[in-house]
C-alpha cells in the first residue's frame, strides 16, 4: 500500500515540476506581456495543484494535510485575482497586445502610438 502511495505522489510531483518548468520557459519564449501571462497561469493552477496534491499524499498528520489544502485554496483564489488585476492595470495604462488578429486592434494601436 505504501509503495503505491509513494509512486503516485512521485508521479504527481514529477508532472507538477514539468509544468512549472514549462511555465518558466513560456515566460521567456512568448512574444508579449499578455501571452506571457497565460504561461504563468499554467504554473499557478495545475503546476502548484499537482505538487501540493503530491505532498498531501505524503503527509501522515491530519493538520499537515489541512494546511496543504489551505495553501492550495489560497493559491487557486489568489492566482486569477492577481492575473486579472495585472491585465487590467496593463490594459488601462496603454500596453496593447502585439499581433492579435482582430479589427479593434488596429484602431487601438493608433491610439497608443498617438499617446507615445
Amino acid at each position: 500500500m505504501d509503495i503505491i502511495i509513494t509512486i503516485c505522489s512521485g508521479f504527481l510531483l514529477l508532472v507538477g515540476s514539468f509544468l512549472c518548468i514549462s511555465g518558466g520557459i513560456g515566460l521567456l519564449r512568448f512574444p508579449d506581456f499578455y501571452t506571457r501571462m497565460h504561461a504563468v497561469g499554467v504554473t499557478d493552477t495545475l503546476g502548484a495543484g499537482m505538487i501540493l496534491v503530491g505532498l498531501m499524499m505524503l503527509s501522515t498528520d491530519f493538520l499537515v494535510f489541512a494546511k496543504l489544502v489551505m495553501v492550495l485554496l489560497f493559491t487557486l483564489l489568489i492566482g486569477p485575482t492577481t492575473s486579472h488585476v495585472l491585465a487590467k492595470a496593463a490594459f488601462h495604462n496603454g500596453v496593447r497586445p502585439k499581433d492579435s488578429n482582430n479589427l479593434e486592434q488596429s484602431k487601438e494601436k493608433e491610439n497608443t502610438s498617438s499617446i507615445l
Partner: peptide, 8 residues
C-alpha cells in the same frame, strides 16, 4: 481567468 489560455 482560472483557465490557462484565457484572461478576463
Amino acid at each position: 481567468t482560472l483557465t490557462p489560455g484565457t484572461v478576463a
